[in-house]
Amino acid sequence: MQTYRRGSSFTDRALFIAVALLAIIWIAPIIWVVGLSFKPNEVLMRTTGGIAAPPFTLKNYTDILASSSVFGWMLNSAIVAIGQTVLTLVIASLAGYGFARTNFLGRNALFVIVLAALAVPEQAIIVPLHTMFAMFDLHNTYVALIVPRVAFPFGVLLMTQYFRAISPEIEEAALLDRASRFKIFWRIVLPLSVPAQVTLGIYTFLHAWNDYFWPLVSATRPEMYTLTIGLASMQTNFAQTEGIGFLMAQAVFAGLPVLILYLFFQRYIVSAVAGGGSK
C-alpha cells in the first residue's frame, strides 16, 4: 500500500472526517435494521424512532426459528453453495492446469473460446437454459441449481493465471522424478495453489449463496427455494405488513452467515474482486 503521505495534516483530517461521515451514512441502514429487529412488533407499528430505547425483545428471532421454511431454505442454500464451490474448484483447477501447463492439440483454440465465454451474460442464455432443463424435467433439483453456474469461466481463468505463475521448472523436476501428469497436478501443483483455491472457493460460495435470477426461475417449489429466493417470496405484500420487526430479523438472520464469512475472509474476498479486475 502506498505509504507516502503528502499535504498538511489539516486537509488529511478534514478528508478523513468527510469519509467517516459517509461511512456512517453507509452503515446507518444496517444498524437501523439490526436495532429494530430487537423491538416488539407492536411498538414498531406505532413508531420506528429511537432504536436505542427499550423495550427490546428476541421474539422476532424466535419467530424465525419457529417458522420451518427458513431453515429448509438455509439448508438448500448451503447445499447449493457448497456443492457449487466444490464442483467449481475441482473442475476449474483441472481445466486451469490443463490450459496453463499442458500441451495438446487445439489447446489455444479452446482457450480462446473460454475467454470469449466471459462476454456472455446470464440473461442471454437463461431462457433457453430454462427450456433445456424443463425438457429433461430437471427443475427443482440441486443439480439444476448447481451445475449451470459452473460453466462461467471466471474460475478457470483465475486458476489458469495462478498456475502459470508457478515455476515450470518445479513441474519439470517432478516429470523427471517420474510423476505422472495427474500426480504432478495432485501432489505438486494443487498444494501450491491453496491461496487461489481459497479465493475462488469463497468467491464461488458467495455468488452461489446470493444467486438470484437462475434460482428464481428454476426453483419454483417452496421446498426447493434457496434462502435468497425464499426471503424474496416473503417480501410481497410489504406495506401492509404488521411484522416489520420480523422482516428485519429475517434480513439480519439471512445476512449473518455471509457477513461472518466476510469478517473472517475479507482479505481473500477483496483479492478475488481485485484479482479479477486488475489483470
Binding site: I91, F99, T102, N103, F104, L105, E171, L175, R181, F185
Partner: peptide, 15 residues
C-alpha cells in the same frame, strides 16, 4: 511443459 499429448486434454474435458 512436457511433450504434447492428447491425453492432456482430459484436464480440460470436464469443464
Amino acid at each position: 511443459i512436457g511433450i504434447p499429448r492428447l491425453a492432456n486434454a482430459l484436464f480440460v474435458l470436464p469443464y
